[in-house]
Design a binder for these strands. Structure first.
Lengths: 231, 231
DNA sequence: TCTATTAATTGATATTTATCATGAACAGGC
DNA sequence: GCCTGTTCATGATAAATATCAATTAATAGA
């Protein structure tokens, strides 16, 4: 993690959190004056679970994984953080501790903004507060869906779901770089890494996807959706 | 579901949502004038997943289960709604559809409040908005923890966790009525009803709990916590 | 380029969990 | 009280998933 400002200002930033549109010029200025830019190398930890929520984090460039450090050192990967996203766990408004850790996958450029300032703006600007609630709600909705997926689907369904997630939400393409290792795919779908390998092979053998070490190509989207939905 | 007001006013209601403390007198009055009281018999559905989020729901008396209707008609029970709680899923601020269903377990008394009014108060009252964010965050935090529990623990750990949940969060007592059927306990822990029976028996045989058809008594809390945490 | 280290793969096996079939216990309606 | 439908309980079996061990492939440094 190094610092020094590369981004000129929030106002001109093309990757800014879209909810900043609800702020007045002077409010956005306040954010701009109190942000701290940082860049991370692949693998570096950006936020550590359990540490104080002194800052909200905004992704400007690159990709990161958000994950909960669970039982016996096992991780549970929740999702991929992308440019324009706010990273602020529920702990910020509950116990002032980060609920999860965040680690860079590619190189990442991000801005930290003091939580006291952020919270103050939420209090005085109703539209901004509402947009934050919308953001939190969307994340919560997603986690509800994931919970059902995890508890009601078998392995192939869970893996299919994640492959579609990468296609639809991360890369917006049927062909993409698999930026997670097999181990990490397992941490995202609650399965052993060996099983990830086996199911990927099954999907490839049945012509649903092409898969090599670092690439995934969805060949039969309908069938993949069906596998994902059927469980 | 029958109607007719039994509760005199929000101001005097002892079971009101604690976040109403942030409202002014006239704002609370507005809530009071626009609420619709309802009582439900055990088993009746109070909110149906997928239906429009026209109202927020407040529990005044009794207990209800909130559950997602998942794949192949399988339900996933999220938690038990108790007096004083707000029931408002993330859908309210995302797609205006209820994310989950709610069904009465005991007889339930509850108040519906039009979502437009509720939303308006969130917009104009910063402290109220903040308290809503806190409420949502607490629920979100809980669901994160549950997600890890579900994906990283084996059956006995998952069931132990739920038994402790009832003791700590629902009844505040080591001895309580098991208001859910074995089937429903399975829907809460992602296991088959037969397995619920077997694990309960195991826990009883090892002296950790006493269990009969409708009652649970925690005999060795330390051991139960250990089982829950170890997975 | 070579080497050390890590990740991916594969097969065999053990463990965990679900399903099926059956009978017992229980609860509500009349 | 007695019938009847539902839940609970139990054993046997099948299916799903994890673990272990061994090998191969890829990658980063020196």
């Amino acid at each position: 993690m190094s610092s020094g400002n590369l981004i000129v200002s929030c106002e001109k930033c093309t990757r800014k959190w879209k909810n900043f549109q609800h702020l007045t010029k002077s409010e956005l200025q306040l954010i701009n004056e109190n942000r701290y830019e940082a860049t991370f190398k692949p693998g570096e930890i950006m936020l550590k679970q359990g540490s104080p929520t002194s800052n909200a984090l905004f992704m400007a460039n690159g990709m990161a994984k958000t994950y909960i450090e669970g039982i016996n050192g096992k991780n549970f990967i929740m999702n991929i953080a992308l440019p324009g996203m706010l990273i602020m766990g529920p702990g910020a408004y509950v116990n002032s501790r980060h609920t999860y850790s965040v680690a860079a996958i590619t190189s990442v450029q991000a801005c930290f903004i003091g939580f006291d300032i952020f919270k103050q703006l939420v209090r005085v600007n109703g539209a901004f507060a509402e947009s934050l609630i919308e953001d939190i709600s969307a994340k919560s909705l997603r986690s509800h869906i994931r919970m059902v997926n995890l508890s009601q689907k078998r392995m192939s369904g869970r893996l299919a779901e994640v492959l579609l997630y990468f296609s639809d939400e991360v890369f917006h393409n049927d062909e993409y770089e698999m930026i997670l290792s097999r181990q990490e795919l397992g941490e995202m779908t609650s399965m052993a890494k060996e099983c990830v390998v086996r199911i990927l092979k099954e999907l490839e053998d049945s012509g649903v996807i092409y898969s090599d070490l670092s690439k995934i190509k969805i060949l039969d989207r309908k069938k993949l959706i069906q596998i994902s939905e059927k469980g």
